[in-house]
Design a protein around this nucleic acid. Structure first.
Lengths: 357, 357
DNA sequence: GTAGACTATTCAAACGTTTGAAGTCAAACG
DNA sequence: CGTTTGACTTCAAACGTTTGAATAGTCTAC
């Protein structure tokens, strides 16, 4: 029963079965404007036949002709970053009402793959591209790629508005301040800080927020208790770093009652390091993270952290790119969302039953 | 400079610029067999022009004509399940050498979305579909969908070979046995077990493996220390369940020195529950998980667990589906990969400095 | 009774590519 | 000098849709 050489049921199969022209069938099934003029009986007949034969419109033929693919490319720099999934879900959610689909690819932190996939997205004629990238890679190349191929682009996770690229990001400054203020309000005065790596976009503003809040609370940050994570793209490197720093801090003999870590994995590394040294969190030392990834929630003690509204960011990105498609110009200024503090068991006032430090 | 109505550079733009026919340009740029006969000088000229104008072949036109999309649909039942990402990476890796791309969609555990995306994949003429689904949803519908649309399908995470669907899965029986044997060899005799929910495919074989190994080690499993997780699809429900069960176990006053949990999140829940009740892991009670997700690694103590070779599973799935495309028949029997034990700090011999239980 | 309006349907071209068949030209052969 | 060969290039049709324009047919109205 009606299946051409391609192995798929086509409009002409249905047309034949209904003794109608391909046009009529197309008009009915795609619910085009002209279908107002098609007799109801015909419509019914066509639809029934389509269903019976198992017709599915060929997206390739359709897009070729319509010159619209209804597709937005989503280029994740590293899908194994837990950051990504909720953002992607948010994007899908935002695209759905406009009947757009996302075409998701994962560069796996490899420049080579990134190029390959970017080209692929162009060949697939995605009408826009959303890039999810909290890591700063060789920025110049990416930007060149983007600009040469005048495709609307939205970037999630960093601010490139100065390069006229719509950006969606979290207010890292506020986030840093939130967590510092929290520790200060618990009564901590001697706070060690683990800063993020240089290559990470979030590092600088987060650090500024931390400093600002510390100053406001009248806390002197001891530079000998401020550490910085190295530039490693492996997501687990933060954890290892945390373990190391914890031991180094203790070995240094300096006094501290809390550690403010760059992200959750680093915080978990700190907990591990402190615990192995015989200290208890939070009784002997408070620890905080950032991001609110799953491990922070299910570890014991749960890690006090800062949550980013990731799904919302995806939604914003989707809306932003759809807007950019409509009027063929990018929309203005960065979309900035506010983070919020999640207090869990890893932070407590200092001195409650402490051993040393 | 050459850009037609579509806003993209086409073959005919290049043809015009080179004073050649579209055919020649196509032959050169697609490196067709006929390009043997094209003068080298012409080739060079065409390639240079293509580059200069920024030509990217239109995947839609090409696929329409060639009747091949070079695309495999990947339908993840729930991308937020950490299970998924490595599998997807493996799939991509396996597809790459064959110059295939994956089209990844996330059903977010919603039947409605699943249908929508499955239809979408059909319209996009994916040549095959890989379904990643450890959860059992209304199986009948899915299978009907699959069978009606004679597209090669491979399923990752469950065994559907009896329905003639190629399947890639981990040997859960062995996995269950591995962890039970580990606890037995540490000297544990009173072991509580948290079984997986009925709806989960892994639950039954894992439980069989556990029972088998227990019997072999001469261990009587006390049925009053065997619990079962409810059928909730939220990935965090395992954690909550663990917390509850830990408290229930302690309240019951029964003696146990180890808890063998269905998966890592459940194990982490157990740890939380025990800790809140004042017990220490592993000194007072050993805890094991399953899956080796990130939280199991970075929690303190690290959770002893069973690792599934997820990336390898993705690779197998990709290879399997490519094979099925070649000779238009599915390949036989299930592909079964072996799990391996990862020993971490959460398991230790019983009695080493215990408090109660 | 024919112009106009409306209904129901079809024609034919186009989207950008690929490809079997066919064309052109020059050199080489008999 | 005619024909074959081979190198190089082009023709034209096709893939499955959509859509502006065209074609019939029917009804209304003056």
């Amino acid at each position: 029963m009606g299946r051409g050489a391609s192995g798929h049921v086509t409009l002409s199969d249905i047309a034949q079965a209904c003794q109608l022209s391909v046009s009529t069938v197309s008009i009915v099934l795609s619910e085009a404007a002209l279908s107002r003029h098609v007799a109801d009986s015909t419509k019914k007949r066509v639809q029934a036949t389509a269903k019976r034969l198992g017709y599915h419109p060929d997206a390739y033929a359709r897009s070729l002709r319509r010159r619209r693919t209804q597709t937005i490319g989503v280029l994740a720099y590293d899908m194994s970053d837990p950051f990504c999934i909720p953002v992607v879900s948010g994007i899908d959610e935002g695209l759905q009402p406009a009947q757009y689909f996302s075409l998701l690819v994962n560069a796996q932190t490899q420049r080579k793959l990134f190029d390959r996939y970017f080209r692929m997205l162009l060949e697939r004629r995605t009408e826009g591209v959303i890039v999810i990238a909290s890591w700063v890679f060789e920025e110049a190349d990416l930007l060149a790629d983007i600009e040469k191929n005048h495709v609307p682009v939205v970037i999630v996770g960093r601010d490139l508005t100065r390069r006229r690229i719509a950006s969606v990001l979290v207010n890292n400054r506020v986030g840093g301040a939130l967590v510092m203020r929290h520790l200060a309000s618990l009564g901590h005065r001697h706070i060690a800080v683990i800063r993020g790596p240089d290559e990470m976009f979030d590092s600088a503003p987060r650090w500024e927020g931390i400093q600002g809040a510390a100053a406001k609370a009248g806390i002197q940050l001891d530079p000998r208790l401020v550490f910085q994570l190295p530039n490693l793209s492996d997501p687990k490197s933060g954890f290892e770093g945390g373990v190391q720093f914890a031991k180094a801090m203790l070995a240094s003999g300096r006094k501290f009652t809390a550690v403010l870590a760059f992200d959750d994995l680093t915080a978990l590394g700190i907990v591990r390091g402190l615990t192995e040294a015989g200290l208890r969190v939070p009784q002997d030392c408070a620890v905080t993270g950032f991001d609110d990834v799953l491990p922070a929630d299910v570890a014991t003690p749960g890690i006090t952290t800062v949550q980013q509204p990731l799904r919302e960011m995806g939604l914003l990105a989707a809306e932003s790119i759809l807007k950019a498609l409509d009027r063929s110009k990018q929309d203005a200024g960065p979309h900035i969302v506010q983070p919020n503090l999640v207090v869990r068991a890893s932070s407590a006032p200092p001195g409650a039953g402490r051993k040393q430090c």
